[in-house]
Design a protein around this nucleic acid. Structure first.
Lengths: 230, 230
DNA sequence: AACTTTATTCAACATCTGTTTAATTTATTC
DNA sequence: GAATAAATTAAACAGATGTTGAATAAAGTT
């Protein structure tokens, strides 16, 4: 079993050259990240992967199947890490409920690790996630498919730390967290432009150090019932 | 001069049928919202607008110019309203600095109004904004272009209410706000799915009622200097 | 009414789209 | 090493892509 800190690329083990399937996935990931699903053609993908166009169909089927394969590949890894971190922080706090800021951190820290030390592929993956998450159609389909079980575990943990809160409030807070988080790891230069270089998007540690307390404080507004009158 | 509450569609004045240019923009807006820039063809747009394909080039030029025209049309209206609301709330508080929650509300409330009472076109527009905002390339270009002056005014106002805060912190907080806000008005069914119907995305008032205190609390974490050690 | 500008139509362009088919090479198994 | 399976190649498919040009119609101007 590999230790946690192996931040190399995925299935293709380092040194020996990646398989055709992974080459296609890597190329697709890179191109989807910058131009979206419809902005990329099969031929662009297979050219980038240095592979015959027909191999995309042969290995994956339709274009949408390539996209799904790209999504699935890292989602599994990521979710496993996030759940492990959540379980860890719950276990450490026992018998008390886990502190809110630690729960939030468990939700976000795997992204930070992968984005900073996981290589280029992970950055592309997060860029895709950011686009999908905000997409009016796909956001409700793909995100739900890959991340709902995880989300429910986290919301349940938060519910335990804030026993007087209303589920409705927590769902919406999770929604805000989701928006802030995906944008943070999207790779936009937006805030760098706005701040005129004061906030480089490359410094993800700086953002994350602020994200966790920001979100934690937001959740805590709803720690007691009926803060919001219906 | 029209009163503030005229939430009808844009240039084409009600009753008489919209101009060809606006028909094209409306169609483009609708299609871009659900399928993104590359997912929509000129022919799809002109078919939806019930207009000859060549008219798109004739009136707007290249495909990207159509997209820019779609963006610009409502950005101008929206930014005018948001700035007016900010000025209003600053004026009301004088000589004190405006309360933080009112500044945040001024930043978000125009979106709430337009999304709930502005007609379908505005919903499509917000869906596009949500996608652009999270796009690794366009987010740093188009958003900067249309919304940076507004963002700077708001951050300056917040700086006045929180005089001991560091600009760096405020920029990142604005970033979180931006992520949560655009996702909120994107039109995804994500949270509706997750909450199994408890949080319908149509109930934007409910989200907004939670968004403002959530974000306000997040900002306030950074009211005093050096909360974050560098 | 003649003229000029603006708007609309139709046809065509070269190129790219996703996918399939059949032939060929490489790897695996008995 | 022959037989079988898996992987790769090259060519072709019908249709869609953004954009342009010349011809026609509508609107506006003197």
């Amino acid at each position: 079993m590999l230790p946690f800190c192996t931040f190399d690329t995925l299935n293709h083990h380092m040194a020996k050259q990646p398989s055709t399937k992974d080459r296609i996935l890597d190329a697709a990931e890179k191109l989807f990240a910058t131009r979206g699903f419809y902005g990329v053609s099969i031929r662009q993908i297979t050219t980038e992967a240095d592979v015959d166009p027909a191999l995309a169909s042969y290995h994956f089927g339709k274009k949408k199947d390539i996209f799904n394969a790209v999504m699935l590949r890292r989602a599994e890894v990521l979710n496993r890490e996030r759940i492990a971190m959540l379980d860890d922080c719950i276990r450490r706090a026992k018998p008390d409920p886990a502190p809110l800021n630690e729960i939030i951190d468990a939700f976000t820290h795997a992204l930070l690790n992968r984005a900073t030390q996981g290589g280029q592929g992970w950055k592309h993956y997060f860029a895709i996630i950011a686009q999908i998450n905000n997409h009016p159609e796909l956001g409700g389909i793909i995100m739900t498919q890959y991340f709902d079980p995880l989300a429910k575990k986290f919301i349940a943990a938060i519910q335990e730390t804030m026993p007087d809160s209303q589920p409705e409030d927590l769902y919406w807070c999770y929604h805000f967290l989701s928006g802030a988080l995906t944008l943070t790891f999207s790779g936009t230069e937006r805030i760098n432009n706005l701040s005129e270089g004061l906030c480089p998007p490359s410094d993800l540690y700086a953002v994350h150090d602020r994200l966790v307390p920001f979100i934690t404080a937001g959740f805590k507004v709803f720690a007691q019932q009926s803060k919001i009158k219906q």
